Amino acid sequence: MDESNSSGRGGRGAATDCSPVQPGKTALLRGRNVERALGFERIHFKFEGGNPTGSQKDRAAFELARRAAHEGYEVITLATCGNFGVAAAYAAQHSSLRTLIFFPERYHTRRLAEMTRLGAEVIRVDGDYEAAVAQSREAAERNGLFDANPGGKNGDASLEAYGEIAREIVEVLGDAPHSVAVPVSNGTTLAGIFDGFCRLYESGKTSRMPRMITASSYRKNPIIKSFREGHAFCMDLHPSEIHETTVNEPLINWHSFDGELALRALRASGGYAEHASDQDMLQHARLLLQREGLSVLPASTSALIALAKVRLNGGLPEDDHVVVLTGRRQ
């Protein structure tokens, strides 16, 4: 697909709907060995590695592809640092759509080859993730493509998709847990899960709202910094503050596209936000593999690190606590 000549829209409903290979309904696992190791009363892992491409991004990708197909688009476009690109390419392939992905040149993901194997056209961007999003949005506007980027006009589809995680947790536990810990980058997953719990509570399906807990790479995320420093709005970092590593890449950005929504979720739930170092994330990934047999993306353990910090500070009652984890794919 030549981006400069791409026309992304056909007749309404021209593309087929998503295949039966759907994301969601992932396992909620009791972490008894981690309970003993870290001193939790009851901890559960919402293991999103059970999704088709191994992460919760599949949920958003399939919903976005469904919407694009329904509205008659032929091409979806997005920027990615890894997981979302693979998820979008997979969902698009199963919806008879094409995918145009903008990828920051200096990032290191091993999943780039998966995107091309799934039929995506990948354009390397000489810049950071935020620059890749800008170029993707420009391509969508210029060529009539479906914009699947977070924080854009179709962002509500991603929020609704992530809200299903809340429903699945309640289906297993019977009520909302005391707290839900979610790693954060753009804030979309955190905000979507919180919105899902809001809908359940407002409809009388839960007796309470959970406390939202989150974490990201040490001093490299606007949501964490803005919350901890008490800013009224999600304040951008300076791009020079961002330094990518193979561990922290899924978490870092100088602008969080759904940062305001994530901050609202943290504040409305009496939440907590914490930093996590690469060393701590790698250590906790090893812990989960050794104690629970879970192969997880190290960056996703930032949420477990934050929850453990709350426990050490005496802020966790003897109750149910959930950590959302992403699977690790080579």
Rank of each mutant, 00 (worst) to 15 (best):
H70S: 12
H70M: 04
H70V: 00
G72K: 01
Y73C: 00
Y73H: 05
E74M: 06
V75F: 02
I76R: 01
I76P: 01
T77A: 14
L78W: 01
A79M: 03
T80E: 01
C81V: 14
C81D: 11
G85I: 08
A87E: 05
A87H: 05
A89R: 04
A89F: 01
Y90M: 07
A91N: 02
A91Q: 03
L97S: 02
R98Y: 07
T99L: 03
I101R: 03
F102H: 14
F102P: 00
F102D: 05
F102E: 08
F102C: 04
P104H: 10
E105I: 12
H108N: 13
H108T: 14
T109E: 11
R110P: 13
R110Y: 09
L112A: 14
R117P: 04
L118N: 10
G119E: 12
G119D: 14
G119C: 11
E121Y: 13
E121L: 08
V122A: 07
V122G: 10
V122L: 13
V122P: 09
R124A: 15
V125M: 12
D126M: 08
G127M: 09
G127D: 09
Y129W: 14
E130I: 12
A131C: 11
A132G: 09
V133S: 03
Q135S: 13
S136L: 11
S136M: 10
A140Y: 01
A140Q: 07
E141H: 14
L145V: 06
A148I: 01
N149H: 00
P150V: 12
N154E: 00
D156Y: 11
D156Q: 07
A157S: 14
A157C: 13
S158T: 05
L159K: 05
E160W: 07
E160Y: 06
A161P: 06
A161V: 07
Y162K: 00
Y162M: 03
G163L: 06
I165R: 04
I165D: 04
R167L: 10
R167N: 09
I169R: 10
V170H: 12
V170A: 07
V170I: 08
E171D: 14
E171M: 10
